[in-house]
Design a protein around this nucleic acid. Structure first.
Lengths: 137, 137
DNA sequence: TATGAGGCTTCCCGTCACGGGAAGGTCAAG
DNA sequence: CTTGACCTTCCCGTGACGGGAAGCCTCATA
């Protein structure tokens, strides 16, 4: 299988696949002409990586997940710990965004949004009322 | 005022302040010895920028906000539009994260997390059941 | 006056996960 | 034989800075 086929089947751009090889996440064979020759197992790994990435795991977390996946003697507790740590980060990010959302929604709702220059949004940004750095970790 | 003082007062790292000058967000004066000489107005702008950044506005959005802030003939509608567009992006990001959170929570709750190698999390990542790229925009 | 500690400056590389695009080799069809 | 679609490597760019080196400047103290 050449790269375009795996790309289509794994749902990943060819560039991404080359990058994953470069950083050692996959090790496809090489044909005589220098083309990458992907096995089914490579495709499988790429699909695994694509799904892990789409769940927000970083590349290094994906590397750890792959290692666990290939380690027949792994403990599921290790996987669960990794996933839970990632879940905590997702939750933290959501909270951060919600705080921004709340502050900004307040400012926006106070703004007439007409042709006049008076704007509570700019005033809020300029004078630090209930906005600003205390809202975010 | 030297850079360390503004940094402390604006709540921004000195590196960030130099960066903001480099990209033209602020234009502090220079003393005879080459040091940056910040006015109160520079400090004010930096505080404005810090608050806008903490609300998740990108640098370019901050640049636009600053321009509006300094434009006495602005229409508040322009500011409101910018803020609302940003709010929409925040909301989208939150939804994306929530989708990840839901999928991953399912997988985690299905995992025993003991010393055995059986792990629904890895199985889910490997076989695309209710996870994967269809969950996210 | 020397010296040492702490400012300040510029400059350059590293981050993270790729994307864009150039220059050039390869393959299958007409 | 040519054309066009592949494939390869290589290098630069992203966003918003952080780290650290090399080299001035300044002030206080011995």
């Amino acid at each position: 299988m050449n790269i375009k086929d795996v790309a289509a089947r794994a749902g990943l751009p060819a560039k991404t696949i080359r990058y994953y090889e470069e950083i050692g996440l996959i090790r496809p064979l090489r044909a005589a002409n220098g083309y990458r020759a992907f096995r089914e197992s490579d495709l499988h790994k790429l699909a695994f990586l694509g799904r892990a990435r789409s769940l927000g795991f970083t590349i290094e977390e994906c590397r750890a997940l792959m290692a666990l996946y290939e380690d027949q003697s792994r403990a599921s507790a290790d996987v669960k710990a990794l996933a839970q740590s990632h879940l905590a980060q997702i939750a933290a990010k959501i909270e951060e965004l919600k705080a921004m959302q709340a502050t900004l929604t307040d400012l926006v709702s106070a703004c007439a949004g007409d042709h006049r220059p008076d704007c509570p949004i700019l005033a809020g940004l300029a004078s630090d009322r209930s906005s600003g750095k205390d809202c975010c970790a």
